[in-house]
Design a protein around this nucleic acid. Structure first.
Lengths: 231, 231
DNA sequence: ACTGGCTCTCAGGAACCGCTCAGCGAATCA
DNA sequence: TGATTCGCTGAGCGGTTCCTGAGAGCCAGT
């Protein structure tokens, strides 16, 4: 795990989103503090000096830009991960991602947020820790997005990639379909869990066909599990 | 990295630009101090003895030229990188670049500033560190701006050069289009990310056609990556 | 003024992807 | 064993993303 106890400040005015983020990040092992407005964010930063800020640009009082300016002006250097609406014109976003910063568009998937946070922290806090995850004969490099099975590279679509990453990070643990849906798909997706079945099917075609014993196993009535042979 | 902890003094009166520069340079590994006026710059230099000054010529109190004169008169010899408006007359600018000095016109691209700073420091602080970057069969000399693919020299336009440099410095890492836009294009560019696609297309024509396996790969839904064969 | 190179925009088309659905098969239960 | 539920996967539609050629506007050099 990358910096298991990095301090993160979550800034979003929608209580629902804020809770979603707070809970997920705490579960992922981060030390999380959350506030709902720009002014509160500024004082929280000065008090707490977080390692990263997850900052919504649409805030009721001061905008995310304003918050950033003030913080940077007062010498705060930790990276910021911005949350922006998808229909915000690109040019508003341009100029934001200075240094280690990055942004994610709403609606996002929780897994995506966590992956991005880890990617930033990996670079910021000069961690030797590699960007590659291994599970059995599977390996996935999160920087290059290269995935290989038994030494052979395979091509994955974006959704396939995100799903597999979630499975790998939770290998040897049964995950329900709705759990998968909640983590991998955007939080406002309101379709059927059947789509998880479809994507599991796609992954099986690309992975299990190249390996002696199937790695993706179905736990009927519960969900799926990515099994690393003989842990 | 060139001189990971060279001391740089940023002098600009616009807080936004100052923050942009400070953050980017800190992230690039420099030891940065920033001030907003000419008088403050002079006292900061006397206190701190920076290895390089990034100096806006348009300042509210003393002009960049005035600052330079006084500093040089008092025996300060570190190089100065001037920031000038594009419409400043040529003769003003030509007088600037004496000694190790150089200038960049506003609006600039962040990547460009960092490259220039590194180029100056490379000369000033007798660095053994070479100005040539290699990625697979690609090589780029940052001093001469010569680029070759598989031993054959190729001609690149300024923008193509900057884009390729950014890709090479971040080889084997997926870069999103907006990330590329933020680093390679000028900070006030507010066009579409489509232009990145266009320039990627130009580079492909010049690079991938001369090499056995394509080096610029599209990661659909994420961005682009320059891949060095057999990492 | 003319020319050529460069940046940037735009639009057509192609490839790809996400998602749904339906039919079939497998597991489960009475 | 038969009925029912659950899971798998092929087919396909509609939308998105990406690529590239064409060209307008701009600037520099001649």
């Amino acid at each position: 795990m990358t910096e298991p106890s990095a301090k993160i400040l979550v800034v979003d005015d929608e209580p629902h989103i804020r809770d979603l983020l707070t809970t997920s990040l705490r579960f992922a092992g981060f030390d999380v503090r959350a506030v709902g407005a720009g002014a509160a964010a500024i004082s929280a930063v000065l008090e707490d000096e977080p390692d990263l800020i997850l900052l919504d640009v649409m805030l009721p009082d001061i905008s995310g830009f304003g918050v950033t300016k003030r913080l940077r002006a007062s010498g705060f250097t930790s990276p910021i991960l911005f949350l922006t609406a998808k229909d915000d014109t690109e040019d508003k976003i341009t100029g934001l991602t200075v240094g280690g910063d990055d942004y994610v568009t709403k609606p996002f998937s929780l897994d995506e947020i966590i992956a991005r946070i880890k990617a930033i922290l990996r670079r910021t806090m000069a961690e030797t820790d590699d960007a590659t995850i291994h599970v059995g004969e599977l390996s996935m490099n999160q920087d290059t997005h290269e995935v290989s099975v038994a030494g052979e590279d395979i091509e994955l679509s974006p959704t396939e990639f995100k799903l597999l990453r979630y499975l790998m990070l939770n290998a040897n643990r049964v995950l329900s379909k709705s759990q998968i849906l909640d983590h991998v798909w955007e939080y406002d997706f309101n379709g059927d869990v059947g789509i998880v079945e479809s994507y599991i099917s796609y992954l099986r075609r690309k992975i299990d066909d190249r390996v002696s014993e199937p790695m993706i196993v179905t736990k009927r009535g519960f969900g799926y599990m990515l099994k690393s042979p003989k842990a």
